[in-house]
Nucleic acid binder design. Structure first.
Lengths: 96, 96
DNA sequence: ATTATTTGGTTTATATTATAAACTAGTTTA
DNA sequence: TAAACTAGTTTATAATATAAACCAAATAAT
C-alpha cells in the first residue's frame, strides 16, 4: 500500500529546494536561501546532500568579485521528484 | 512561499498511520503494523508521539487473553492532517 | 590606512528523529 | 515443562536537521 518515500527528498528544506529547481531549473544559493527561508549553513549542508544523490549539479564561480554558487536540477533529480510525488499521493489522497 | 510542514506528520511512518486512521477512523496495532510494513518497535514509538501530540487516542484492553491496542484519530489529528496536505501542495504542486 | 561590516558561503557541534535490536510479560502448543 | 508465539515496550545506535561558529575575501566607515 504505502511505497517508501525517498529519504533524500523527504526533508522539508531539500524538498523545497528541489521544488524550486523543478520550476526554475537553475538558481543561485542566495535565491534559494531567501525563497526557502533557511539559514546558509543548513542550505549549504542540504544542497551538498542533493548533489551527492546526483539530484542537482552545483557550479561555483565568481560574479563581481564574490563567490557565486549555482544549483541546477539533473534529470535524475526530476525523476526522483516525480516518483516522490507519486508515492506521496498514496499517503495523502487515500480515497478508500 | 513554503509553509512549514508539521514535523509530527512529516515522518513516513506517522504519516502512514494518520493516513490510515483518517480513512478507517480506528484500527488495531497489528493492523497498522501490517498495513504500514513497520516493525513493532518503531510503530510503538511513533503512535506514542502521535498520542503526545493529541493526534490520536490509544486504548489498551485485552481480547482473547492477549493485549490489544486500538488507535483512533482525534479531531485535532484530522485537522493537522488536512493542514499538512494543504501545506505540502505548495511543495509538490499536486494539482498539476 | 586600519577597523568594522557585509557577502557568500562551509564546517562543526548538538539536539532531534528514526529504527533495529533486545527485552518484557504473558499465552499457547508440543 | 519447555519451546515457540503474541503483542507489544524500552534501549541503544545511526541518521538527520539545524544553529552556531568559523573562513576568506570585499566593501564601507573613520
Amino acid at each position: 500500500m504505502f511505497k517508501d518515500l525517498d529519504p533524500i527528498l523527504h526533508s522539508q528544506l531539500r524538498l523545497a529546494v528541489i521544488s524550486l529547481l523543478v520550476s526554475v531549473h537553475e538558481a543561485e544559493f542566495t535565491y534559494l536561501k531567501e525563497e526557502t527561508n533557511s539559514t546558509a549553513g543548513n542550505l549549504s549542508a542540504q544542497i551538498q546532500k542533493l548533489k551527492e544523490a546526483n539530484y542537482i549539479h552545483i557550479e561555483k564561480k565568481f560574479k563581481d568579485n564574490y563567490p557565486l554558487t549555482i544549483c541546477k536540477i539533473t534529470p535524475e533529480g526530476i525523476k526522483a521528484f516525480e516518483l516522490y510525488v507519486k508515492s506521496l499521493k498514496q499517503y495523502i489522497n487515500l480515497k478508500k
